[in-house]
Amino acid sequence: MTYKNTLSSKRMLPLHGLAGAVFLVIAAAFVWRMPSNSKATDTTKDIVAVSPLHVTKIATLGAPDPTASYWKSATVAVVPLLPQTITKPTIEKSEIHSMEVQAVSDGTNIAWRLAWADPEADSAVDSGKFSDACAIQFPIGTNTNLMMGHGGEVEIFLWKAIWQRDVNLGFQDIRDLHPNAWTDLYWFSKGGLETNIKDAFADPRAKQWMIALTAGNPMSQMDRKQPCEECTAKGFGTIATQAQQSSQAVGVWAGGQWAVVFQRPLRTEDVTDYQFGLHASEFALAVWQGSAKQAGGRKQFSGWVPFELLNGNIK
């Protein structure tokens, strides 16, 4: 089996030595294969391809759906992942070794499906407890470093299992984490722990102790409509939630596998957004294993992977 590096060398230039070495390993290793029912870690049916991942054209994209039939005919890229060891904090070994990526477009919207094997869904967050999550990153401008866009800028679509849980079942409250918890009093609130937090803390005076929420921290949102967020990053430690959100996502865990779909218009009015077809057609991935207490820089990541939008892809 031979591999061919299909990535342009310009992406390697801004990387420092170690990052460059990691990048080369990834670039040399990613492979394409035709759709199959195999698990993400089963690479026995891999075939080598030299062309970028095709964004498959379909007639109409409805609401994001990881189980939609069009995914069965879309090209699959199996993208190898490496443990993040370039900046601290690091992980010592990968918990997730590869992800399957597919993309489809109807000319107006584009959807990305990320799938990976995970024996357990981790969707609760608490002290020492972390959520599964994944992200896909696109470069804005040129000379964009793989690592959070250092030296340039990237747009990141980030999905978290805890956000999916919030959307599916309502905001994760203390009683969801600790069913037998008891508290005598929350000042100015109505009802105790058994009362839903949004109803119990409707009085602004009761929110005095929810400082991050009051400060507008996007992590503290209680009425999340989407389990994802669009972020901008310009280097390590700079990820920031964008003011305008144009993406939708749905994540489903079944049979030991997560499948997450991000969906967005190919072009948006938001100047902070990556524009498909205008900016470089490359993506990179990251995935976090909640059970291994991964968050932030403790993650698995890929190198830049090229993709191809057919000429007729954008209406």
Binding site: L177, M210, A212, S220
Partner: peptide, 11 residues
């Protein structure tokens, strides 16, 4: 330093 599971930030 403590993690607040409701605000989802550390305090």
């Amino acid at each position: 330093v403590f993690y607040n599971a409701v605000s989802r930030a550390s305090e």
